[in-house]
Nucleic acid binder design. Sequence first.
DNA 1: GGGAATACTTAGAAAGTTACCG
DNA 2: CGGTAACTTTCTAAGTATTCCC
Length: 485
Amino acid sequence: MLDHEYTTKDIFRKNFFKDWRKEMTAEEKSKITDLTKCDFTEMSEYFKAQSEARKAMTKEDKQKIKEENERTLQQYGFCIMDNHRERIANFRIEPPGLFRGRGDHPKMGMLKRRIRPEDIIVNCSKDSKHPEPPPGTRWKEVRHDNKVTWLVSWTENIQGSIKYIMLNPSSRIKGEKDWQKYETARRLKKCVDHIRNQYREDWKSKEMRIRQRAVALYFIDKLALRAGNEKEEGETADTVGCCSLRVEHISLYPEKDGQEYVVEFDFLGKDSIRYYNKVPVEKRVFKNLQLFMENKELDDDLFDRLNTSILNKHLQELMDGLTAKVFRTYNASITLQQQLKELTNVEENIPAKILSYNRANRAVAILCNHQRAPPKTFEKSMQNLQSKIDAKRDQLADAKRELKISLDLAVQRVEEQLMKLEVQATDREENKQIALGTSKLNYLDPRISVAWCKKWGIPVEKIYNKTQREKFAWAIDMADQDFEF
DNA sequence: GGGAATACTTAGAAAGTTACCG
DNA sequence: CGGTAACTTTCTAAGTATTCCC
C-alpha cells in the first residue's frame, strides 16, 4: 500500500502500528518501536515485480490462468437453490489485509484478520452436499435456516459485523426481490399526492415531533436524501443522512441570489461523499427549520424528536411496505421516465437517442448525488477526443471540396462519424464527476429502459451490457413498449 | 422504547479485460 | 501489433430496515 495516500495519514499509521505490534514476538517488539524507521521498500519492490511479471506473461500463459480461473468458478461459484443452479456473488473469502475505510475513518489501517474454517457458518438444506472444510479443520457451524438467503457467514473483526456470501444478482431470489422493490415504488406513485398533502398539513402541527417528521419527509421526498440511521460515535466516519442531520449541516437564508427561503445543505453522506445543495423551500418549512434550530449548538441534532425508526413506523401506516428508501427509488424511476419522454427526439439517430438516455440517467444520478472522482486521465482523454474531432472536420471539408460533383455517400459517412464523435465528447464532459452505474443498477426500474428501447427500436445491448442483462432478465422478458412505471 | 444483532441493499474504488487507434 | 482508453468485473465498505430481547 506504500504508494497509496492512506499510508500518509496519521490514524492509518497509528492503527497499523498498534495492530502490527500485537503480532510481534517479544524480540521484534523490543526492536521495532518506531514506524517511521521501518523500511518496506524491499517488500514493495517484490510485489511490483510480481505484478510486472504478470503483465509480461505470454498469451498462452495468460490463457492458462484464465482457464484455471474458469475451473475455480465452475467448482465454487455456483450452488443449487430450489433445484436451480445459481451463480454465487462473492464466493471467495475476504483475504487478510489493512482495513481501508472511506473518508475520515477512525479504524483505517487496522489489521483485518485472516478468516479460518473455524470462523465459518455454512447455511444449507439438511439433505444437501456442501463444501467440506480443509483437512484437519472444521466449520464453526453448519445450520439449516431456510428463512434467510445467505450460504455462508462469518464475523469480521474491525466492526464486529457479520459478512455474508449470497447469490448473484442474476439469481431468481435476487431478481424477484428487485422486482418487488419496484412494485412497492409503483404503489407509492399511486398515493404520493396524498402523502405530500399530509406532510404539508403536518408542517402546521401543534406537536414538535410531527413537524420534524413532516419536514424530514419533505427533504427525503424532494431531495432524495437517505433516511439517516444513528451511528455509534468513534466506530465509523462521521457521516449523516436526513434524520441524523445536525444544525451545522444547514444554513438558512431568508433571501439568496434573488430567491426566497433558501436552505443550504453541506454534509458528508454515505461513503463520505459530500452533499452540497442550495434549495429554495416553502416558507413554512423555512420557519419550522428556524424553530428546530433555536437554542441549539452546532453539533446538536436538527431533528431531535425524530429517528429513522419513528419515521418508518409512520410511513408504514401511510402505505403497506413504505419506508424512507422507497422515496429514493420512486423519485429516481419517475425522473428517468419523465426525462426520457422529454429528451428523446423522434428525428434523431441511434447515437443521439442514446445520448438522450444517458442524459436522463444523469439527471437521476445528480438527484441521488452519485459522484465519482474524476478519472485521473480525464483532461488528457478529453484533449485526445478533441483532436480527433478536429481531424474529422478537416477530413469532411476535404471530402466536400473534392466531391462537390455529386451528393456522395462518403461525405455522408464522414458526417455521421463526426457527429458521433461530437456526441461522445458532450457525453463525456457532462459525465466528468457523475457516476451513472449506481442509479442504473439500483434505482431505475429496468422496465422503463426496456420499454424505451422497444419503442424507439434501440437494441437493449446499447443500454445494458451482458451482466446487466442477466440481472434484469426479468424486466427484459416482462416489459413491452407501452410499459408505464 | 431502546439497544444489539441480523440480513439485506447500495456504493465507489480498483483490478482486470477488451476495443480501438495509429 | 502495441499502447492506451474505455468498459466490465470484482471487491468489500457502508448504508437501510427489521427482528429480537429486555
